[in-house]
Design a protein around this nucleic acid. Sequence first.
DNA 1: TATCACCTTTACGTAATCTTTACACTTTCC
DNA 2: GGAAAGTGTAAAGATTACGTAAAGGTGATA
Lengths: 229, 229
Amino acid sequence: MTSHTVIIIEDEKQTRRFLRLSLEAEGYHVFEAETGGEGLKAVASRKPDMVIIDLGLPDMDGVEVVKKLREWSTIPIIILSARSEEKEKIIALDVGADDYLTKPFGTGELLARIRVALRRAISNEQAGNGTFSIADLTIDLIHRKITKMGEEIHLTPIEYRLLSVLAQHQGKVLTHSFLLKEVWGPNQMDNAHYLRIYMSQLRHKLEKEPVRPRYILTEAGVGYRFAVE
Amino acid sequence: MTSHTVIIIEDEKQTRRFLRLSLEAEGYHVFEAETGGEGLKAVASRKPDMVIIDLGLPDMDGVEVVKKLREWSTIPIIILSARSEEKEKIIALDVGADDYLTKPFGTGELLARIRVALRRAISNEQAGNGTFSIADLTIDLIHRKITKMGEEIHLTPIEYRLLSVLAQHQGKVLTHSFLLKEVWGPNQMDNAHYLRIYMSQLRHKLEKEPVRPRYILTEAGVGYRFAVE
DNA sequence: TATCACCTTTACGTAATCTTTACACTTTCC
DNA sequence: GGAAAGTGTAAAGATTACGTAAAGGTGATA
């Protein structure tokens, strides 16, 4: 099982440290960003599973960060707010944040909120139990585990994200630009070649006959799709 | 069931009389208008279920009436044209008319066209699910999947685009230039031969007897249409 | 600072698709 | 009846898209 990745966008050093320690103790993989701009870049490049954003950032309003993020991503967002930031907190939730924590908060509350947000994100994407299977393949989105004939298969982060997007839209043809946006972010939308490389890798890891794929199907000139049945 | 209301915009008294009698015998509710201007007003005030427009009107070109009507209404429009009005007929279809009848025409043909246009309008209102079906054919625009008797059929990008345009205007006559613009873009509008090639390919993939097509119908000199029911 | 896993870039053979060309058939009009 | 225009089909040529391997880069980790 791969651990979930969280990005913390927070300017105060001590809060950052507290968050990192609390999350790493639970097995999360943590990255930090000190400013909004930095944070947005980090989300685009690292593709975390969730983001924690402090509302009182120096360069950019936390609300702005949430808004910008929501232009292309549905990633879970939890905001941290001081008691004085009541109004902004509401606005941040309005523009798409998932949940909030009012400082000061304890570790237990923090972790509970994170678990809820992650679970909701997964079940939102796939109404159901978060697992898919086709023939001898199973994809468990909650535990981030892929098995082929019972054996676990190791996927790199990009491979995993690509496969989970495909699986969540099982049967539907996903265009190149959609897949690129979902997996690599909005800055790589013209790089369709990445898809070919990673589709090839996925096929070699998942398919019996990578040359004649049964799961990952190509729609020439359009995109790819994950087979049903 | 309430009877459908039809407005006839036609200057010749005898044609008007013929239409009125034919339609009223079928239970339609009929209003008449002698000029384009009058007709437009009547459509606005009486809110009919469809309009029949003669192309040879005294005050305003029939094409103009169609154009003006389409600025605010999606009501089904059938045009009546003399043999000499071939060009205007195509323009009228291009600007949004649904179907046409070339004089002289019989009652049977008239009523059949009216039924098709009304049915199309009704199914358009209830549309939105993104799937179409006719006989043993289903077109799933969401999953980008075509099936014939349950079996999936592979289409190339152009074939798919062409079929989806046809299906989305089921029952309506689509001119060559309209189809070319929709599928190949505005730079290929004179290349009507592409249509023949791809219509042939579609028929061979979709029809039981490609030589006697049931779904993809040719309107000689005008364009194509996708059959209803 | 060396190593490792991963991502990105580059290169090239193959496959799928689109366009062009050719020709037979049908309908329409003189 | 014959020419002309419109239509359908087949097959070649041209173009674009795809899959794969392998080298180069990057960042995390110890």
